Computed example of a mutant assay.
Amino acid sequence: MSDHSHLWAACLADPADDTARLVLADLLRESDDSDAQAKGRFLWAGVTAAGFRDADLIDDPHYYAAQAELGAVAASGAPARWLGLLWIGPDPLTRSDWAWDATRDRVTVRIGDTLGTYVRGMLAEVAASLEQWLVLSRLAPMPFS
């Protein structure tokens, strides 16, 4: 199992632990692959912004750097492409197929009627219409088959 796989597993095993997320973010940002770099930047920014979730007044430049990274990666379409890997939306996605919005460490991507919400840099929620859910359930491989 690769370092990437171990770190992804650690993130999933303890979603509240930021240490594994930040180590994974650093590893991804050092990659030669531009998509991996985007994932690392997005993950770092999400975790960093989440640290200010309860602040009334934010004057720390790290927060604003994190917001800039979240915005840059979201505007590039990377989170929409990642959501598209779940068979959501047309393949390939075009810029007119998706939209995004952000609040603090939450980035929400809309593709058609489906919403994907990233929290602290990782996909945390997917909201789909019943019709879309039925389509997705037919496409997704069954884990026990």
Rank of each mutant, 00 (worst) to 15 (best):
A65I: 10
W8H: 06
I88A: 01
D113G: 13
F144Q: 11
G77P: 06
L12K: 14
A50F: 13
Y118M: 04
L24I: 03
A72C: 09
Q132C: 06
D32H: 14
R104A: 12
A65F: 08
Q132H: 05
E125R: 15
S2D: 15
D91M: 04
P15C: 02
P143S: 09
L130F: 11
A20R: 01
A72F: 09
R95P: 08
Q67S: 08
R106I: 14
E125Q: 15
L93W: 04
E131F: 00
D33N: 13
Q37W: 06
S76W: 03
P92T: 05
W87E: 15
A10M: 03
L130Q: 13
D113A: 12
V47C: 07
V135Y: 11
T103G: 08
R110I: 07
F42A: 04
M122P: 01
P90D: 13
L7I: 02
E69T: 08
V107N: 05
F52I: 14
F42D: 03
D56T: 07
S96G: 02
L12E: 14
I111Y: 00
L130H: 11
V47E: 01
F52N: 09
R110N: 08
L24A: 02
L57F: 08
R53P: 01
I111D: 00
G71N: 15
L134A: 09
R110D: 09
A10S: 09
R53F: 12
L57G: 01
V126P: 10
M142G: 01
D54L: 15
D35W: 15
Q132T: 14
S31A: 14
A38I: 04
Y63P: 02
A75N: 14
D3R: 15
G71Y: 09
A49Q: 05
D17Y: 04
A16T: 10
E30D: 13
P79G: 06
Y63S: 06
D26P: 01
L123Q: 06
A72Q: 13
W98H: 06
W98K: 05
L85Y: 07
T114Q: 05
V119G: 03
A36D: 15
T19V: 08
S137P: 00
M1T: 10
S96W: 06
A80I: 07
Y118A: 00
S2L: 06
A74N: 00
A74I: 02
L136W: 04
A20P: 03
E30F: 02
L123S: 02
D101E: 12
A55I: 08
G84N: 10
D35R: 15
A9R: 14
W87C: 11
P141V: 11
L28W: 01
L86G: 04
R110K: 10
A72L: 13
M1D: 13
R110F: 03
A128R: 07
A16P: 00
Y118S: 00
L85N: 12
P90R: 15
G89V: 01
A20N: 02
F42Q: 06
W100R: 02
G112C: 07
R104D: 15
W8P: 00
T103N: 12
A72P: 07
R120H: 05
